[in-house]
Amino acid sequence: MASEIKPIWQRVLNNIGDRFMGWSFEVGGVSLLVWEIMRNTFPPKLDGEETWRNMYKVGVKSFPIVVVTALLVGAIMVIQSGMYIEQYGAYGLLGWGAGYSVFREVGPIMIGLMFSGRVGANNTAELGTMKVTDQIDALRALAIDPVRYLVMPRVFTMIVMMFLLVVVGDFVSLLGGAATSQYLLGVDMTLFAWSVITYVSLADFLHGLYKAVAFGFAIAVISCHFGLNTSGGAVGVGRSVNASVVGSAIAIFILDYLITYLDT
């Protein structure tokens, strides 16, 4: 911005400082939003109709891509495990290899990233458009709290839907895996199923579901934060959506690590 020429070290420091301030602003904003959400959760204040509409929209929108993703992820994991299984001839472990990795890690991460791209990004775009067209201010002028009216239903919806989608996704990915093992690897489906049932435990399944809930919450909060802090017209909306998906991806990996660390 300033056109006078500064020494290089000063510019580097400036740059680092700017970045740091930017990140601090976002982290602070997200924390404040979480605090607002907590305040609205005890006692719960939820606009039933808005929630229901959101659930329908989110579910319908993300179901097909989650199913496609899960099918392929299951298939890919079976192919990868297959490469080792073939080497050692341990066909009975195929279902375990695929099931374990999908349930615990790959499933929630991939579905989370897809969910963030589909629902989170869409949410940011929607709230961002409302913000730049002054609709949020209009709500405030009507004494309606945007957090309560807009954010709460979305947070609730995204947690519930992420949970349900991971449950569905887990089973669909097993179907994809079973089909791949039968037709590409030539390992009988029943053997695959037996392997899943015998070796994959309920704990593995639950581990993925904890992650689903955490990701759902994180995606909701982050996408709402960036949406509500949009400025600068169409360009600003694009920038917000970009920032929102990047933030969500970072949150997904950090939370995944924390949950893996705590729950093993």
Binding site: V73, M110, G117, A121, N122, A125, A234, N242
Partner: peptide, 20 residues
């Protein structure tokens, strides 16, 4: 701005699906 938001969402989803 609505169109831009929509396009950004579409891009993320389509790219991710294509990758998978």
């Amino acid at each position: 701005s609505e169109g831009v938001g929509q396009a950004t969402t579409t891009a993320v989803v389509n790219c991710s699906l294509a990758v998978v």
